[in-house]
C-alpha cells in the first residue's frame, strides 16, 4: 500500500487531507510547496515508481473541467471531462498515462468543491440547452481508490440533483459498494473497460479479472444502474475474433441489454511522442513491439487492421444491442 505521502503545505489542514492521513498512520509524510515539484520533475522513471507509487495530496487551481478530445462522446452534443486524480492504481501496459506523465505517483486534488463550481459554470453557460455529458476516469480510475478519495460519495449526490446532465464514471474496479448505497439515476453511467481475458491477463496488471468485472456489472444492473461498456482499446492479436466474441457473449449473458446506456470502442493508438516514451520504458513488452504504423504523428495499427478489428467487434455487438447505442472512439481525430 501507500508508504509515502507528499502533502502540499496549503492543504495540510484540509479536512479531506486529515481524513486520508488518518488512514495511513505508518506512512512517511513529507510537506511540499507544490505537487509539481515532485510530479513534473524530469529524470524520474515511471516504471520504477509504479512498483511502489507515492500519494501526493494537492490543490488544483485551474482547468477543472475540460472539453473532451474531438471524437470522444456517447451521444451528447457537449462533452467535458474532469480529473480529481492523476494516475491510476492499475498498471495496464497499453495505458496512455505511462507516456503522458513523468511520474506514476498518484496525485489527488482534494478541493472537490472547486470542481463542482466549474461544472456548475459549464452547465449555466449552456444557454442553448444542449445535452451535456461529463466524464470522469480518463486520467485515473473513477472507483479504484474510492476508499481513500471518497470521490463517489461526494460527486454522486451532486449529479443526482442534475437530472438533465449525464455523468460517466469510467472504471476497471469492482469497488461498487459505495455506488450500491445510492439510489440509481438514469443520467449516471458506470462504464467498465474491457479487453479479452487473454489480453487482460498479460497486460492489465493489478486489475480485477474480467469475470469479476462482469459480476460487478451484473450487480449494478440488478440494482438499476445504467452501464457503459468500453472496448477501448481494442487489441489486435492472433485469436482476436474468438476472444472478443467470447468477451461480448460473456458480458451479455450476465447483463441484460436494457441496462446498457452505450457501448464504445476504438483500436489502440498513441500520439507518436507518447508511444516512443512508453516503448522506451517497456522495451521487453510484446504488446508495444507490435508493428504499429505512423500516420500524422499518430502510432496505430495499419488502417486495414484497425478497421477490420473495430468493424468485427461492432458487427458482433449488433447481435445484442441497437446500433444507435454503439459509438466508435477516435480520440486523436
Amino acid at each position: 500500500m501507500i508508504k509515502t505521502i507528499y502533502i502540499e503545505k496549503s492543504i495540510k489542514n484540509h479536512p479531506r487531507t486529515k481524513k486520508i492521513l488518518k488512514k495511513f498512520p505508518n506512512s512517511t509524510q513529507i510537506l511540499c510547496d507544490q505537487y509539481k515539484e515532485i510530479f513534473n520533475r524530469k529524470k524520474q522513471n515511471f516504471r520504477i515508481q509504479k512498483s511502489s507509487p507515492s500519494l501526493i495530496i494537492a490543490k488544483k487551481f485551474n482547468n477543472f473541467v475540460l472539453p473532451t478530445p474531438k471524437g470522444l462522446g456517447i451521444g451528447s452534443n457537449k462533452n467535458y471531462y474532469f480529473s480529481h486524480m492523476l494516475n491510476c492504481l492499475y498498471d495496464c501496459r497499453y495505458c496512455f498515462l505511462q507516456g503522458m506523465y513523468e511520474s506514476s505517483n498518484f496525485v489527488l486534488f482534494v478541493n472537490f468543491e472547486s470542481f463542482v463550481k466549474s461544472i456548475e459554470k459549464v452547465i449555466k453557460n449552456n444557454l442553448s440547452g444542449e445535452k451535456i455529458t461529463f466524464f470522469s476516469g480518463y486520467d485515473c480510475d473513477s472507483l479504484a481508490m474510492e476508499s481513500i478519495t471518497n470521490f463517489v460519495k461526494f460527486f454522486l449526490p451532486f449529479f443526482q440533483e442534475k437530472p438533465n446532465i449525464e455523468i460517466e464514471l469510467r472504471t476497471k474496479s469492482v469497488a461498487i459498494k459505495r455506488i450500491l448505497n445510492f439510489e440509481p439515476f438514469d443520467t449516471c453511467i458506470i462504464a467498465f473497460s474491457f479487453t479479452p481475458d487473454e489480453i487482460a491477463r498479460k497486460n492489465e496488471h493489478g486489475v480485477p479479472s474480467v469475470k469479476s468485472r462482469i459480476e460487478a456489472m451484473k450487480k449494478l444492473s440488478n440494482a438499476g444502474w445504467k452501464l457503459g461498456l468500453r472496448l477501448d482499446p481494442i487489441i489486435y492479436h492472433l485469436n482476436y475474433k474468438y476472444n472478443y466474441k467470447k468477451l461480448i457473449d460473456d458480458i451479455f449473458l450476465k447483463v441484460p441489454e436494457k441496462s446498457f446506456h452505450s457501448i464504445s470502442l476504438g483500436a489502440i493508438r498513441f500520439p507518436r511522442k507518447m508511444y516512443n516514451k512508453i516503448s522506451n520504458l517497456y522495451p521487453d513488452e510484446k504488446l508495444l513491439s507490435k508493428h504499429f504504423v505512423k500516420e500524422n504523428k499518430i502510432i496505430s495499427y495499419p488502417k486495414n487492421i484497425e478497421s477490420e478489428i473495430v468493424s468485427y467487434c461492432k458487427e458482433y455487438l449488433k447481435k445484442y444491442i441497437d446500433e444507435n447505442k454503439i459509438f466508435s472512439f477516435d480520440p486523436y481525430l
Binding site: K3, T28, D33, I48, S51
Partner: peptide, 10 residues
Amino acid sequence: ATYYPSQIIK
C-alpha cells in the same frame, strides 16, 4: 533549493 529523493528504496 529543494529536492525530493525517491523513497522507493529505504
